[in-house]
Design a protein around this nucleic acid. Structure first.
Length: 478
RNA sequence: GCGGGAGUAGCUCAGCUGGUAGAGCGACAGCCUUCCAAGCUGUAGGUCGCGGGUUCGAAUCUCGUCUCCCGCUCCA
């Protein structure tokens, strides 16, 4: 319950302080679509940047690309999304339970003997292939398949939910011009596999990374920015020699977990969730789950995708997508290990982790603050410079310091209200460092630096500010 | 999609046995010149989510709709 309140508080805080707004709010909003505000955009950009540099700059054998959202429609036939990304569903009217039709029938099949089960599944698959929804409903009714909750056979019609958005390309809106908004970014990498490998003279094992928007027409999209219809993925496809996928899968599981821990988040907030039921392309798969305010939920997936995708594209395009491995003198279609993290989920994770309501009450008075304890490298604003008063030349000194620092990192200037109030405002935005310029600054060129998390203050030389902050906000220290 | 809850100022909410809106905080301007919010003065800001109905009159009653939250469901 307290966690429900925490999610509410975070959502409210995000809106009030310019991190995340609902899309089209003045028109009542658009369901499950959100906009990033002035600070949210900075935060998101910083997380993306940290991921990008971790996965490209810091790696010897991974390069980044930026593929288009639109792709040839056949891509999605080859990937299996046209056929598998839409699930026929049926509801039981009495229990209000919804089932995927294939799951419902398969579960019933397991109660039959082997022969009958096989016959049932054969019929089901034929009907699924033909998109014969009436036939599927008939099949359910003929077999008197009942709802596990209500026990009745009072079913709605079978309905289709296609999770891909589509639109038309070109001026003529006919069937031939339908294009999809990509439901995942991965295919942009697979179709460019040879382009990158050849032009970059890449040798296996190597990886291709990219970040970008993807779109899914979720039936129910909820949980703030956890499940949105338009979202951003950050993913990397690592191409390996067939047979070595197991070791690389383990390698990337571990490497990606280290990345998460490098955000300063403790290990007990994470767990791996191995997939028992694998997607059609995978031979091993797991999720990295983070303990969100609403419980452990997937933030990242690590999948061993085998050679499924490249083989499919090879088949559908008629183009060879093989690699010649000079070490073993062999042509082969590489196997792929995928790491795929939702950027918006990462934002939500970082926000959940950072958001703290602190009770600062003393015997004399009640006091509290809301503080976002972002890792400094991710904070939207790195440094606030605050003149203690707005006269006696203090603002001039403060502004000169800002001018000195703003080429390197985001700064914020504020002279209104009491110094304590300004500190608290910066806490609410997650600014890790505040510099206060006072009268003593004019005497000895020192200022007060105040730390967000500890609220401690110390006197440092004005000339050292830029270097000190730069050291603390860099992404990769020594 | 089903069930439950909610929508009034930037935020938290009051007003809801019908008579066209208030508080606290916040914001802005000024005073104070203060090293951890809540000192003083002043100002701005709301067709009460949207649409229809009942009524002389609707924030209030009623119907519809949109959005958000929770649970179920779903989730490559």
């Amino acid at each position: 319950m307290a966690n429900d309140n925490k999610l509410q508080s975070i959502i409210g805080h995000c809106k009030e302080y310019g991190f995340i707004f609902q899309s089209s709010e003045i028109y009542d909003g658009l369901s499950a679509v959100y906009d990033y505000g002035q600070y949210g955009a900075e935060l998101k950009k910083n997380i993306r940047e940290y991921w990008w540099r971790s996965m490209t700059q810091m790696q010897d054998n991974i390069v980044g690309i930026d593929a288009a959202i639109f792709m040839h429609p056949t891509v999605w036939k080859a990937s299996g999304h046209v056929d598998n990304f839409s699930d026929p569903m049926i509801d039981n009217k009495d229990s209000q339970k919804r089932y995927r039709v294939d799951h419902l029938i398969e579960a019933f099949g397991e109660t039959l003997d082997k022969e009958k089960e096989a016959a049932l599944l054969l019929v089901m698959n034929q009907l699924l292939e033909a998109n014969d929804f009436a036939g599927l409903k008939q099949l359910i009714e003929d077999n008197k398949i009942s709802c596990g909750v209500s026990g009745t056979c009072n079913w709605t019609d079978v309905r289709q939910f296609n999770l891909m958005f589509s639109t038309e390309m070109g001026s003529v809106a006919d069937e031939a011009n339908v294009v999809y908004l990509r439901p995942e970014t991965a295919q942009g990498i697979f179709v460019n596999f040879l382009n990158v490998q050849k032009s970059g003279r890449m040798k296996i094992p190597f990886g291709i990374a990219q970040t970008g928007k993807a779109f899914r027409n979720e039936i129910v999209a909820r949980g703030f920015i956890f499940r949105m219809r338009e979202f951003e993925q950050m993913e990397m496809q690592f191409f390996v020699r067939p047979g070595t996928q197991k070791e690389w899968y383990e390698y990337w599981k571990e490497t990606r977990m280290k990345w998460h821990l490098s955000l300063g988040i403790s290990a007990d907030k994470y767990k791996f969730h191995d997939h028992m039921k694998l997607a059609h392309y995978a031979d091993m798969a797991c999720d990295i789950e983070y303990d969100f305010p609403m419980g452990f939920k997937e933030v990242e997936g690590v999948h061993s995708r085998t050679d499924f995708d490249l083989k499919q594209h090879q088949q559908y395009s008629g183009k060879k997508l093989t690699y010649f491995d000079t070490e073993i003198n062999q042509h082969y279609v590489p196997y792929v290990i995928e790491t795929s993290i939702g950027l918006d989920r990462a934002v939500m994770m970082v926000l959940s982790e950072a958001y703290v309501e602190e009770d600062l009450s003393t015997e004399e008075k009640q006091d509290s603050r809301v503080v976002l304890k972002f890792p400094p490298m991710l904070a939207p604003i790195k440094l606030a410079v605050l003149p203690l008063t707005k006269k006696d030349g203090l603002p001039e000194i403060a502004k000169a310091l800002i001018d000195e620092c703003k080429t390197q990192f985001r700064c914020f200037y504020e002279e209104k209200d009491s110094i304590g109030k300004r500190y608290r405002r910066m806490d609410a935005l997650g600014t890790p460092f505040c510099i206060t310029v006072d009268h003593q600054t004019k005497e000895d060129q020192t200022v007060t630096i105040r730390y967000r998390d500890s609220m401690l203050q110390e006197r440092i030389a004005l000339a050292d500010v830029k270097r000190l902050v730069l050291e603390k906000v860099q992404m990769f220290g020594n």
